[in-house]
Design a protein around this nucleic acid. Structure first.
Lengths: 345, 345
DNA sequence: GGCGAAATGACAATCGGTTGCCAATGTTTG
DNA sequence: CAAACATTGGCAACCGATTGTCATTTCGCC
């Protein structure tokens, strides 16, 4: 069996090996494999058989170089260790694999410079990119989108296709939830200033608060890490609010830890609402009330939108904006407001 | 400013553009950029200036095709959503970026087939691979390692360079910890059968238990997910042990949740020890006693070993095996054994 | 001043495919 | 039966870099 091998040493087989084996030109092999219709079916079958026999695997570099298409899609996230992105990444990976694409995952380290240089780098090694929670300015993003197909996640820039997670509406749900529990002094623990999600959420929240006649303070900004939760918790305590809506679960979980250290009970003394329903939100102490979304699905949708851009075949107009629903998930970190002990300062 | 641009349309600049701009041959440009010593310093500076002016970025595909080196390294993990791999991935990414390499991250979905086909795929698009917790057989791994530079993480196959995490020694620490708390009936909640880590850990554990004259039962196997924790918890309760050492934190955390549901107190009624000290281990309820290791460092070391293999320049002999230390981190999920209520069945 | 060695730059082949173009073949139709 | 057409296969250029070879230049040295 094994000795049936041609003299083809150990080097991976190329289309030339197949061509030699079948007695046709290399270009015919190429066509047989990529444009099957343009080749006699018998020849094609011979070629396919030979390819299978040699265990042929096309060289993606060469393919990319000559055709211009790389068959790869870049996925940029600000921080791989942020659990929020796990499901997103998994979603993109699954959808890409299903379409025969390769995923190039890059952690941009929450840096706009790394993000920009990565995009430049990817310009020739990927057919398109999915950019989650970009730290770039609108202008920079728009310029980058002009150079290569792009879909953003959680970032709304006119002219750039995007998958948006509808946290604003869930934020309102969270606010109503807290109000119904008797809270009137509430804080929003903001995320990074460069995060559009955080800004949008705050806008929605302050408007909704005004309509409802309750006070919502803006505290922060805080880095989206559990470590920042300590500062956030202290700020919340200091500003004497009875409930907090955090930019994300990492901050919220960090707050839970800090409040526990300080002997402040959750939810008896302070209610906390997170956002994203990340891994850990269900088993922290107490379990975190949070705003949940179909993140993995967001990843899939982002990829679908990108691929539609890349292969604008049959389908009608390309959707340029997709909004994922979000809903409040009530767990143990929210409860009735404590009895009023002091007046507003 | 912007109009100073040459007629070079919008297409990314190539070495030919630089060559034309400088009035030299393309090959000279190539040499100037990759073998600076072999080119007149004045010419070189002119070329570098031109490259900077044109904002030249080498085409990695073309580079790979002609030189055979891709400048990329594949990193294969069984499950991206397993927090254990976060720090590992971050470690590899940092070290690779520092060395000017690109990371190709692939989730092999805990499947040996996906793993094998990914390796084949990567054979031409990466210079080497780091394989974490491989699901392949020793033979398959060895064969794959013969075809391309490889470093494994948490998998010891003779002839394949590896970074090993010394959980066995920490397992013994965990056992002593539990014994000192009065536990005599202990269970090991095993991971996947194909996981060598799990097997090694069990071997160490059962030997140590024998030496110490305590009983340690093998329960499982359980999938390394929190969802499996429920089954694991029930199995533990059924077998009437007072303490469990879980294959990893995911299972351990799942057990905590299930035990809480069933009204079994941790650590009063049952002690739980996890492994890996993943994100979440410090804020679950109760905080998990677990075995911690410098995972990010493991990632860096793996990459260093791989790069040493790729560029066997100055350095002496290539290290082929590196063991990362592990220690027990005692938190709230372990405590004194409950008073004996029944005899061994 | 002239010789040889070292330094340098240009040319061309090469990596492994894709693709435009043309020729050869086969088929249908007038 | 021939002409027009459709189908198929092969040649060769090309993608953007690397690299071996060789001619030329430069420089040092006797």
């Amino acid at each position: 069996m094994a000795t049936t091998q041609r003299a083809a040493v150990d080097r991976p087989p190329t289309i030339h090996d197949i061509a030699a084996l079948c007695g046709v030109a290399a270009s015919t092999v190429s066509r047989a494999l990529s444009t099957p219709d343009r080749v006699n079916i018998r020849t094609r079958q011979r070629i396919e058989a030979a390819a299978a026999q040699l265990n042929y695997i096309p060289n993606s570099q060469a393919k990319a170089l000559s055709s211009g298409r790389t068959g790869a899609v870049g996925v940029l996230v600000p921080d791989i260790t942020n659990p929020f992105y796990f499901d997103l990444i998994r979603g993109t990976q699954l959808q890409l694999k299903a379409a025969g694409y390769t995923q190039l995952l890059v952690d941009t380290e929450e840096s706009d410079e790394v993000e920009a240089s990565t995009m430049e780098q990817l310009r020739k090694s990927a057919d398109g990119i999915v950019v989650a929670a970009s730290r770039l300015t609108d202008e920079a993003l728009l310029a980058a989108a002009a150079k290569m197909p792009m879909v953003t996640v959680n970032r709304d820039v006119h002219g750039v296709p995007a998958v948006l997670i509808d946290t604003p509406s869930a934020t309102t749900q969270a606010l109503d939830h807290l109000i119904s529990l008797g809270h009137t002094r509430i804080a929003y623990m903001a995320g990074p200033l460069t995060s559009q999600s955080s800004t949008r959420r705050w806008t929605t929240l302050s408007e909704a608060a005004e309509e409802r006649g309750v006070e919502v303070r803006l505290l922060g900004p805080f880095a989206p890490k559990t470590q920042s939760g300590a500062a956030a918790a202290d700020a919340a305590v200091h500003s004497r609010v009875t409930a907090c809506i955090a930019f994300n679960d990492l901050i919220a979980i960090g707050m839970l830890q800090r409040l526990r250290e300080r002997g402040i009970r959750v939810p008896e003394d302070m209610s906390i609402v997170g956002c994203d329903d990340i891994f850990g939100a269900d088993f922290c102490n107490p379990p975190l009330s949070t705003m949940a979304s179909p993140i993995e699905q967001a990843g899939r949708v982002a990829v679908s939108m990108l691929l539609a851009q890349l292969n604008p075949l049959a389908g009608g107009g390309t959707r340029s904006r997709s909004v994922m629903p979000t809903h409040l998930k009530v767990r143990g970190s929210t409860g009735p407001a404590p009895a009023r002990q002091d007046s507003l300062t």
